[in-house]
Design a protein around this nucleic acid. Structure first.
Length: 380
DNA sequence: TCATATT
């Protein structure tokens, strides 16, 4: 699906989303492989079964990668539930910290909805991420820990050339070469994820310490670090999140406010006192102010076309921050959009930035009107 | 000397 607009990190984003070095989006080149649904001999009636008699969800079960770090299970379900009925879905989290690992699974009831989800949501830009939606491979121990870290690559080697080098050992699921943020030149390190762990092991045996054709230095090939080992950054971020949620009342206590500031500073690596306003702090702490409903900040979007659907709203607002829900209001009889919809965002600052940016935005031949929802509009 | 893909 064509994205509605190209998102780039605007200057304000750098202040609103101060990221640590290891959270910086480094430019990468990556193949978007699509795991095709595995074939199955479905029975005429009832759910399709694989050879061993287990339910075959190969045509309904999807894996979603590169999700924004702050996306919750509810947001995840809301996004993919906008496509069709979900049998089950799960945002995968760190067992210790509960932090999102940035990927999840969605199993639809109808294989057609799984297909639709791939076609409409793969490549969707949410915040500074581009999500990937593809069929999940059948879960198996043999496909775990198949990720390799490669260093010492010639700077001239492209991702394609690296894949060619490794493809002799098995099916490559993803590959990536890290490049310098500013110059775009290869840093000589990358990742190769094989379909099977055995294939990765063979690649290490065959390529570690070897010189690629025409290279002057040998490359190092080893298993990549496991994502489980979290750094202090992630722990602080987690600390901040869990602590902030405990503040349920107004921040009238100077000590509370000071502590929250400190947590914010630590979590985001800010050196000086963060110029975060009381409004944003209260919204971050889950405090209700006027205009906010319990689920977040509800935004009214007017002048949508009759064909508008939920994915349009996700695409418009997702890049600005955490979106918990979107809704297109439709005519009961025709099922066409009545020209408006609602978007709920978690954080005040992000909602305010989305409104400031999207109010007056031209969508097709229409100029959108975007504002916080008012009680008057609530009646409609 | 490392971004995140198997519930």
């Amino acid at each position: 699906m064509a994205t509605l607009f190209k998102m780039s990190r605007c200057p304000q984003d750098a202040e609103r989303y101060p990221l640590s070095a290891n959270e910086q989006i480094i430019s990468t080149m990556e193949t978007q492989v699509s795991n095709g649904p595995t074939s199955n001999s479905g029975l005429p009636n009832g759910p399709p079964l694989s050879a061993n008699g287990a339910a075959d969800d190969s045509k309904t079960n999807l894996i979603v990668n590169y999700l924004p770090q702050n996306m919750t299970q509810e947001e995840f379900k809301s996004l993919f539930g906008s496509i069709g009925e979900i049998e089950s879905c799960k945002l995968v989290r760190d067992k210790i910290t509960g932090q999102s690992l940035g990927y999840g699974f969605v199993n639809y009831v109808d294989p057609n909805d799984a297909d639709k989800a791939i076609n409409t949501l793969n490549g969707l830009k949410l915040q500074m991420k581009t999500i990937k939606v593809s069929y999940a491979r059948p879960s198996s121990a043999s496909i775990r820990d198949a990720n390799l870290y490669v260093s010492g690559l010639p700077k001239s080697m492209s991702q394609k050339e690296m894949e060619q080098l490794f493809s002799q050992y098995g099916r490559i699921i993803t590959s990536r070469i890290l490049v310098d943020q500013v110059t775009g030149v290869s840093r000589g390190v990358g990742f190769i994820r094989f379909d099977k762990r055995i294939e990765a092991e063979e690649a290490i045996k065959g390529l570690n310490g070897q010189k690629p054709l025409g290279a002057s230095e040998p490359i190092t090939v080893k298993f990549a670090n496991n994502p489980s080992q979290k750094t202090g950054q992630a722990l602080l971020s987690h600390l901040y999140q869990t602590t902030a949620r405990r503040y349920t009342g107004p921040l009238h206590h100077q000590t509370q406010r000071f502590r929250l500031d400190n947590l914010l500073n630590m979590a985001y690596g800010v050196k000086r006192f963060s110029p975060i306003t009381i409004d944003s702090m209260t919204s971050l702490a889950g405090v209700n102010l006027t205009g906010a409903s319990s689920g977040g900040w509800c935004i009214f979007v007017y002048n949508l076309s009759p064909e508008a659907d939920e994915s349009v709203l996700w695409q418009l607002f997702g890049p600005f921050g955490a979106v918990t829900n979107v809704k297109v209001i439709r005519d009961f009889a025709t099922n066409k959009c009545k020209g408006f919809g609602f978007v709920t965002m978690t954080n005040y600052e992000e909602a305010a930035m989305a409104i400031a940016s999207l109010n007056g935005y031209r969508l097709g031949d229409r100029i959108l009107q975007v504002s916080f929802k008012t009680s008057k509009q609530h009646k409609a």
